[in-house]
Nucleic acid binder design. Sequence first.
DNA 1: CTCTCCCACATTGTGCACAATCTGGCTGGT
DNA 2: ACCAGCCAGATTGTGCACAATGTGGGAGAG
Lengths: 244, 244
Amino acid sequence: MTIAAPAKPARRAPRSRSSAETRIVRSIGEAIADRRLPPGTKLTEESLAEIFGVSRERVRKVLLLLAQRRVVTLIPNRGAFVAKPTAREAREVFEARRVIERSIMERLEGMPRPLPAEMLARLRDHETLEDAAEQAADRKAMIRLSGQFHLLLAEFAGNATLAGILADLIDRSGLAIAAFERQSSHTCSAEDHRRLIAALAGNAPGEAAALMIAHLDAVERQLDLDTKPETRIDLKAIFADEPA
Amino acid sequence: MTIAAPAKPARRAPRSRSSAETRIVRSIGEAIADRRLPPGTKLTEESLAEIFGVSRERVRKVLLLLAQRRVVTLIPNRGAFVAKPTAREAREVFEARRVIERSIMERLEGMPRPLPAEMLARLRDHETLEDAAEQAADRKAMIRLSGQFHLLLAEFAGNATLAGILADLIDRSGLAIAAFERQSSHTCSAEDHRRLIAALAGNAPGEAAALMIAHLDAVERQLDLDTKPETRIDLKAIFADEPA
DNA sequence: CTCTCCCACATTGTGCACAATCTGGCTGGT
DNA sequence: ACCAGCCAGATTGTGCACAATGTGGGAGAG
């Protein structure tokens, strides 16, 4: 298990203690998002503590936070593992995204026209980055940028609470994709995103929302959510909290 | 600050360690939900540890979990406080609920008719409880039952992920209500809920979803989200993580 | 040779002691 | 009288030592 070493291994005095934790959360979160840490990977407290140059207690706290966000799974007395969503959970996450992102697009479509130039500019700048990543076949960058695109739209919609919820769902859909993607490499969604921007810039009511639904459907359809799970279930883990 | 003593003060051996934590989370969560712990209340680790008969470490972990759910606010070196949403956050939470609960009602409306008898029966049983609480003017029970009603609908819709998200939003809207409700006591929503059930049992497409939107709008409109905050902001807390 | 039981090791869980920080009041100076 | 600075008490934060638990391998019997 390799994790990207932190940019600065605790050299400068931390401006605040909690920012060290958010840094670690982000590091691990990104490593999970771009698949350097595939679902099921064991996250040993000691190793992480050494890698990030912090005490085990701090790592423990970070893992607890990530577990709340369902990005890692905590099994009592067994340790922390990168979460491995079930097919059902994967479907639920995509449906939740459709629900939330449809409303985000509807809200953006409901904004007074023309849309702020700055908004469109930032979206198009982002799209340029996505194109570049696609050209370079930089899969990790594509995944990260794709998530950021959806989050960017959420921020423009102006509801930080919904954006926060969506951020978690994006992380989890990344896990779902990692766990269920088919062998056949799929052409990623830069083109879809371009069309979404065009629909927003244009004026056909409902088009952007419909495109977003279609986009999320397309991503979900590229997954193999029908085959039965070949990895056998860990019964002990499942029943760890049952009465004796 | 008084908190309901736990039912059994750590007498029987805990079946598992984590269930003790979930018990405390629920105890505190319920105390917050039905306003025994109003927004802004300080939650001292030591006191909670004593009350629940556990070590301070465990309380600390519980507070971290509740902070993730935005039910309590953690201020470094200052302690934990029952969260006090801003007006903006309150509006965002209600909009998020409209988004999610509209889709839940749409999904329920899309189920094959007639709806399962058991589902309607459970909803009507629940409604009976709400009526009883309203008759008895048991405000705490009304609040709790109202939240459970919305959660029940979410469960019937069959998406556990969305239901989990909604559960958090319901808690937070309870906080928003506690923080912003007007002096004038409002007639609570038992009648609205009755109409929702009727719309679901009936067959007019879109009616239940529309009623849900109206219901949530009505609850939000009963709040006073326009007056400026009289409680001065804790600047130190806000800038605790800023660079020096 | 295989299967089971058991033990040693590795990893996680917990309480405690001490360090760091904040609050509120007190004191001394102007 | 008022204000600044400071000190004591209270509260939170952190590392460490040890306890509890799970895992894997090896020994011994069949």
